[in-house]
C-alpha cells in the first residue's frame, strides 16, 4: 500500500513537472544536442556546417499521426534541405513504454521508408524536455543567426493530419518560405493533436 501511495505521489509530481515544463516559442534560442543517428553516429547541429537552419521534428515509429505525416516530412526535406533547411527527426519515446519505438525499430523504419534525413534517438529525453516537445509529430524550425539557433516556428506541419490534399494551411512550408525570403513568419506557433511523448517513469 505504501509503495502504491508512493507511486501515485511520484506520478502526481511528474504531472506537476510536465505542467511546469515550458516550451520553446518563436524568438527563443534553442539548444544544440549530441544524439545518435540510425547509423550509430553522433550528430550535433554544429557539425552540419552548410545549413542555414533546421526543421527539427519530434518523431517516432508507431504513432498513427506520424505515419500520416511521413510522406510530408520527406517532402519537406526534399524541398528545403537544398535551400539550407534539412529535416532532423528525433525520437524521444521511452521504448520501455512503447517497444515499437526502440532504437532498433528506428533503424528498421528509416530503412523501410528510405529516410533521407537524420533520424536521431533522444534516449535520455533531455532534448525533448528542453525543447518542450509534448507530442509526435511536433515541429521546430530553427535558423542560424549570429551563431545562435533561433526558433522561428513551433507546431504542426499543416492543418489536416488525415488528408494532405485537404490541408489548406501549410504552416511549416509557409514559415520556411517566409524565412527564405527574409520576411517575418506570420503564424509562428500552432497546436495540433498528436501522440503524447511517453516519458520515462520516475
Amino acid at each position: 500500500m505504501k509503495k502504491y501511495l508512493f507511486t501515485a505521489f511520484a506520478a502526481l509530481m511528474m504531472t506537476g513537472l510536465l505542467n511546469a515544463q515550458s516550451q520553446y516559442k518563436a524568438g527563443d534560442i534553442a539548444s544544440d544536442f549530441k544524439l545518435k543517428n540510425v547509423k550509430g553516429e553522433i550528430v550535433s547541429l554544429a557539425d552540419i556546417k552548410d545549413a542555414d537552419g533546421f526543421i527539427v521534428a519530434f518523431w517516432c515509429n508507431t504513432c498513427p499521426v506520424v505515419k500520416k505525416y511521413d510522406q510530408r516530412l520527406q517532402y519537406l526535406h526534399a524541398k528545403y534541405a537544398s535551400k539550407g533547411y534539412p529535416v532532423i527527426a528525433i525520437n524521444a519515446i521511452d521504448p520501455a513504454v512503447s517497444p515499437g519505438d526502440s532504437y532498433d525499430k528506428m533503424k528498421e523504419t528509416a530503412a523501410k521508408l528510405n529516410y533521407k534525413f537524420e533520424y536521431l534517438f533522444d534516449e535520455t529525453q533531455e532534448i525533448a524536455r528542453k525543447y518542450g516537445a509534448t507530442n509526435t509529430p511536433h515541429i521546430y524550425i530553427l535558423s542560424r543567426r549570429d551563431g545562435k539557433l533561433v526558433v522561428d516556428y513551433v507546431g504542426a506541419i499543416d492543418n489536416n493530419a488525415d488528408d494532405a490534399s485537404a490541408a489548406d494551411k501549410k504552416y511549416a512550408e509557409d514559415a520556411l518560405n517566409s524565412i527564405l525570403k527574409g520576411q517575418p513568419v506570420a503564424v509562428a506557433g500552432t497546436k495540433a493533436v498528436g501522440c503524447g511523448i511517453k516519458w520515462k517513469k520516475g
Partner: peptide
C-alpha cells in the same frame, strides 16, 4: 474538425494537443 489549431485552446489554453 481537423484544423486542430483553431479549437485546441478553446478546450484549455494549457493543452498542447497530446491525448488523452
Amino acid at each position: 474538425n481537423l484544423d486542430y489549431n483553431s479549437w485546441i485552446e478553446k478546450v484549455d489554453a494549457g493543452w498542447q494537443g497530446n491525448i488523452p
